[in-house]
Design a protein around this nucleic acid. Structure first.
Lengths: 147, 147
DNA sequence: GTTTTTGCAAATGATTTGCATGGAT
DNA sequence: ATCCATGCAAATCATTTGCAAAAAC
């Protein structure tokens, strides 16, 4: 840990930079900032929430840039897009496999606190001609507030 | 089978009507038509595709009506909303549990042809205060065309 | 007869695009 | 020096809403 800041950064700027270079993307302050902000938030957030949090550190960061950076970071494997959330996409820097509960009424997305074996599903996908990045379980229903 | 048509209708108009009444919804020709059209299509379709197919049988069926009917039918358990498809929602009348492959590049959604045991995930969700309707696996990655 | 649903037109809200400037390689 | 990424404004696209007329109960 040669970081001089106090917040935890499991991935770190270097790892993000390396992941970007590896796919031929340029390393920009916006991309690093967005990955780092999302990691600091430690939960699923909307693009708008993320922009608000990041804009505190880089004033005129634009929304199109946030969208573009997230797509790039997703391709570099540094962030995950989370399905569900009532129309708008949610993003998460926690790339380790975990699963979600999506409320069909209010769109809230929370984490499922259990592991599920999906190796068979992933290899079946590959056998169907698909190139899987990962798999997740989505449980749909009503959250505690909406039930 | 007292149907005079030749297409197969596993659910049937009566079952749809009963499901609607059971939840206190009114039985309308639009709702029956939409459920039946979706069932006839036998795959995931967008709202727009569904409207086009249904409009052939009921000329000035409006898009807002299709949206409203799908939500009602979902609540009545007669159709499923499928996650993934690049922003827009996809719908399916095949309510039996099955799983999906979602292409992160083009948004295409195809079925996974394998069963996955999700009982543990569903009961864990219930233990977290969630009221689950069902669960599914989403494998994300690149489809055969985009890889 | 009363209440819900429909159809239409218009509003909303997330995401994307075009294009000139600035930054990374 | 070259090419990619950013910022801004405006466009796009799916979905939702308001409201009067029509249909279901």
């Amino acid at each position: 840990m040669h970081d001089q800041v106090h917040t935890p950064h499991p991935a770190g700027l270097e790892r993000t930079a390396a992941a970007l270079r590896e796919r031929g993307y340029r390393v920009t302050s916006q991309r690093l900032l967005i990955q780092r902000t999302l990691e600091d938030m430690g939960r699923h957030v909307s693009v708008e929430e993320l922009r608000e949090a990041a804009a505190g550190r880089l004033p005129n960061l634009s929304l199109p840039t946030v969208y573009a950076a997230l797509e790039t970071l997703e391709d570099a494997g540094m962030v995950r897009r989370v399905p569900g959330g009532r129309g708008r996409a949610l993003w998460d820097a926690r790339t380790a496999e975990h699963h979600h509960l999506v409320c069909r009424r209010c769109g809230a997305v929370e984490d499922l606190r259990t592991k599920v074996a999906l190796e068979a599903a992933v290899s079946a996908a590959a056998r169907q001609g698909f190139a899987p990045d990962g798999a997740e379980v989505v449980v749909h229903g009503l959250c505690s507030r909406c039930r």
